[in-house]
Design a protein around this nucleic acid. Structure first.
Lengths: 196, 196
DNA sequence: GCGTTACGGTAACATCCGTTACGGATTGAA
DNA sequence: TTCAATCCGTAACGGATGTTACCGTAACGC
């Protein structure tokens, strides 16, 4: 295996360790040593792979974006109709299973970390705006004939709803089970006339 | 002034310092020394007022809940109609001005801190469930005749939407100005037939 | 007026943090 | 085989953190 592939694979493994620590121990315990322990290596490897802790976090944040993006594009391509695509893309943003619940917690951790990290907040804004553009495109396709302003407003409401549900469920899974989250999503889509 | 009032006032001042640090510097820099500096005192006072950092955070979290609760109850009492009450209560949860934007950032910081703090997560769940009960009551009053399940689903969707919009706007105020947030709220209420 | 008590600032403690320096091990080429 | 380069674990460093101990001081009861 080439050296660059090794480096890239190590970077990914360390990023997954960042997610793991962020989800299980929280931002306050997200130290270089904790990440190294979660990845099964030492701080030496971490600091040889990344110039500093900030770069490590930024890489983990970017990789999270990349992974959810590819998942979303697959869902979008496989959907049988524009409305099914819209629903599938929004649905994957909920916190309906351990995997997505962890992602929601990690997403929140990065957001909290971004308050004191200029690079992280820039990354967050870039990703969020791309996400918004995507949902606007899907909404427009699902609601032909709507004026652009209506599309933008409804897309924002849909994004916010999904993100809010995920945050609520991530912090209190028992109070917001998967079925209830999906019911809220379908009720909202239905209210806008975007149901199947 | 009595000694107990002094103690209580100091606790409130320290809690406000916690909010300030959380909003301006983020969770990672929320240290006892930073809180003391923001409050214009020394760590000695902080540690005499609270047994440890965790108790300080918990008090600040509880006070934040108490303050928003009283604001919400005032809005609810002053509203001319059930639908106006629902809208006003949801609207105050958006991040439409520096005050509420700061609250949204602080709220997010406490949520991230709760990942590694059993007391904070319990407080969060308790408050969120109370919040949900309140919005369900307001929704039921605004939509007479709805079955309970419909009320619960729509209330969840409304809560999630408001919370999601606040999170988006807190992290990227330029992309989500106040008018756009309100438009999303009104569009959602309108879609459910709960507009004025 | 005086002693006691609670208050709060100072400074220290042990620990943990991010980061750096160093050294041994492994790899690949000559 | 040998030499150079790369990799990465070890250990240390300066600084920051939560917490504790100590001490001066101001307020309150007698």
């Amino acid at each position: 295996m080439s050296r660059t592939a090794d480096r890239s694979a190590q970077g990914e493994a360390l990023s997954r360790a960042v997610w793991s620590v962020l989800a299980e121990q929280g931002l306050e315990r997200l130290t270089v040593r904790a990440v190294a322990a979660a990845a099964g290596c030492t701080t030496g490897l971490v600091m040889h792979r990344f110039p500093n802790r900030q770069a490590l976090l930024l890489h983990a944040r970017q990789l999270l974006h990349e992974i959810t993006r590819s998942r979303v594009e697959r869902l979008e391509a496989e959907a049988p109709s524009p409305r099914a695509a819209l629903r599938a893309v929004l649905r994957q943003g909920l916190a309906t299973d351990p995997q997505t619940r962890q992602e929601a917690v990690v997403w929140m951790g990065f957001l909290a970390a971004a308050v004191s990290d200029e690079d992280l907040i820039a990354e967050h804004r870039r990703n969020n705006r791309a996400w918004r553009t995507r949902v606007e495109r899907l909404t427009a396709a699902a609601a032909p004939g709507w004026p652009a302003e209506r599309v933008a407003t409804v897309a924002l409401a849909l994004i916010a709803m999904a993100e809010g549900v995920a945050a609520l469920a991530a912090a209190d899974p028992d109070a917001f089970p998967a079925a209830e989250q999906e019911r809220a999503l379908d009720a909202t889509l239905g209210a806008y006339g975007l149901g199947e």
